[in-house]
Design a protein around this nucleic acid. Sequence first.
DNA 1: CTAGGTGCCTGATTGC
DNA 2: TGCAATCAGGCACCTA
Length: 272
Amino acid sequence: MPELPEVETLARHLQHLLAGAVLTGVEVLWPRSIALPGVAEFTRRVPGLRIERVGRRGKFLVFSLSDGLNLLVHLRMSGQVRVEPPGAALDAYARVAFDLDDGRRMIFSDMRKFGRMYLTTDVCTVAGKLGREPLADDFTPSDLRALLAGHKGALKPLLLRQDVLAGLGNIYVDEALFAARLHPRRKADTLSRSEVRRLHSAIRQVLAQAIASRGSTLRDARYRDAEGQAGEFQEHLCVYQRQGEACVRCGTPIERIVVSQRGTHFCPRCQR
DNA sequence: CTAGGTGCCTGATTGC
DNA sequence: TGCAATCAGGCACCTA
C-alpha cells in the first residue's frame, strides 16, 4: 500500500516527467474517483491547466497547476499514477485518463476504487487537518514528545493517525516500532526521553531508507512508480508480513497480532 | 475527547 | 474441482 515513501518516490518521478506539461483533456471512467468538485465541473476545468510542480503532503500527491489550482491525489490501497506514451491502451483498472499536450497520457489506475482526487484552489480544504511531516528538518524529538503527551492509548494507533503525523501507514509503523524496539501496544504517554529519541530517529531512518529504495512493492499491494517500476524496500522489511520468520536481531520468531483492527507484526523479545 | 463499528471495493485465500 | 465466505487495507463517517 502506498505510504509516504511510495508517494514521495512517485512525486519526484512525476515532477521529472511532467513539470511544464499541459493537461489538454480528461476522461473520467469511474466517477467516484473524483471527490471534488463534481465530475462535470472537474471535466470542464481541467483542459488548459499547466502542471507547474508535483510534490507531496502526507500520503497526498499534490500537483500545483496554473490558475492557482491544485490537484490532490490519494492512492489509498491500490491507486497508481502512470505516464504512458502516445497510443498506449488503457489497462482494466484505469479510472481517470488525462491527455497531455505532447500526446502522452497520465493514467490514474485503481483496482480497488478507494483512491480519490480533488481539484481545488485551497490545498487546506483537503489536507488542512494533516499533522506534522515526519521528515521535515524542523521535526525534533521534543516535537514527537509533545505529540505523544496526553495520549493514554497505544502507540501504534496514534502513529497511524494522519492528523498527528502525516504519512505513516501499517508497513512503516510496524518497521519503525521494531527499529525503536518498542511494543505496538505500549501506552503512548509512558515513553522515557530516550525512548522518544529512539522512536524519532527510527521513524525518520525507516522512511529515508525506504525512499532510497524507491518504496515497497508487496505481493498483494501493487505499488508502482510512474513508469510501472516496482520498489525494492520490501527486501529490507524486518517484521512486516514476516510472521514466523526469525528476527534479524535476536532470532526469535516474528509474531502477528491484531492491534485496533490492524494486522501488526513485531518481535516479542526485542519489543517490550 | 477517544473508542469502536461500518462502508467503500476486489483479488487472494480459505473452507466445504 | 468449484463455489461461497472471509479477509486485507486507509480513511470518512457514524454512534456511544
